[in-house]
Amino acid sequence: MSKFNKDVGNFISLVTGAKKTMAYRVDQVERKKHKSPILSGFFGMNKIQSLLSKEGATGLRIYYGLDIDGDGKRDKQFVLVATDKDGNDILPSLEKGLAKDASAEDILSTDLWCPYDCPKANPLNSDNG
C-alpha cells in the first residue's frame, strides 16, 4: 500500500493542537518580530472537494507560499493541490493555464486570512481561548 493513501494524517487532541499553534505564534511574534502574523486561512468545502474529486486524487498537499501582491509585506500563505497515490501533485497541463498564468481550478489559495477574518478566540488561535 502506498504511503500516500486516503488515511494519512493523525488526529490530535485540542491540547496538542493548541501547543503547536501557540509555538508558531510565539515564534512569529517574538523571534521573527511580526506584529500580526498569518495564523490560518479558510478554504471553502466546495473548493476542497473539487480538488479531492480530481481523477486519481488521494489527498491534498499544502505548500507554504509568500504573498506577492507588491505591498512589501511577506505574508505567509498556503497553496493547496490534489495529490495522487504516489505523492505526485495533480497539476494542470501547460495548455490549461500554466503557460498563460490562468486559473485552471487545480491549485487553490484563499483571501480569507486570520488575523483579519478570524473565528472567535479559541485555544488554536489565541491565548484567550
Rank of each mutant, 00 (worst) to 15 (best):
D117T: 10
A99C: 06
R25M: 09
N46M: 11
A23N: 15
P37D: 09
A102Q: 14
E105P: 04
G56A: 03
K76D: 14
A99I: 01
V79C: 05
M1H: 09
D101K: 09
G59P: 01
S109T: 08
Y116M: 05
L108N: 03
L52P: 10
G17W: 02
R25P: 05
V15E: 03
T16M: 15
D71E: 13
L39F: 06
T16P: 08
E30I: 06
N125S: 09
G129P: 01
D67F: 06
K73L: 06
G70F: 03
Y24K: 11
A82E: 07
I38Y: 04
N46P: 05
A121R: 14
L124S: 14
F78M: 12
R74L: 14
F4V: 00
T110F: 02
G56W: 00
R31I: 02
F11K: 12
D89Y: 04
W113L: 13
S126C: 08
T83F: 01
L60Y: 10
T83S: 06
G97I: 00
K20G: 06
K73F: 05
N5P: 04
D117Y: 12
I38K: 04
M45L: 05
I107G: 06
T83Q: 08
T83V: 08
L52N: 07
C114L: 10
T21E: 14
I38C: 11
I48R: 15
S109P: 02
L112T: 15
L14P: 04
A18N: 02
N88V: 00
G65Y: 10
G87H: 01
G72I: 07
K120G: 07
F11Y: 09
S53T: 11
L98G: 08
K100C: 01
N88M: 02
K76V: 06
T16N: 15
S40T: 02
H34Y: 09
G44Q: 05
I12M: 12
T16V: 14
D111S: 13
A57V: 00
K100V: 01
N5G: 13
Q49E: 08
A18P: 04
A102T: 12
Y63G: 11
S103Q: 12
T58W: 01
E105A: 14
V15C: 04
N125L: 07
C118T: 03
K33R: 07
K85R: 13
K120P: 02
D86N: 04
D106M: 13
T21C: 08
C114W: 04
T21Y: 06
L112G: 09
T58L: 03
I48P: 11
E55W: 07
T16D: 15
Q28V: 05
V8A: 03
S40N: 10
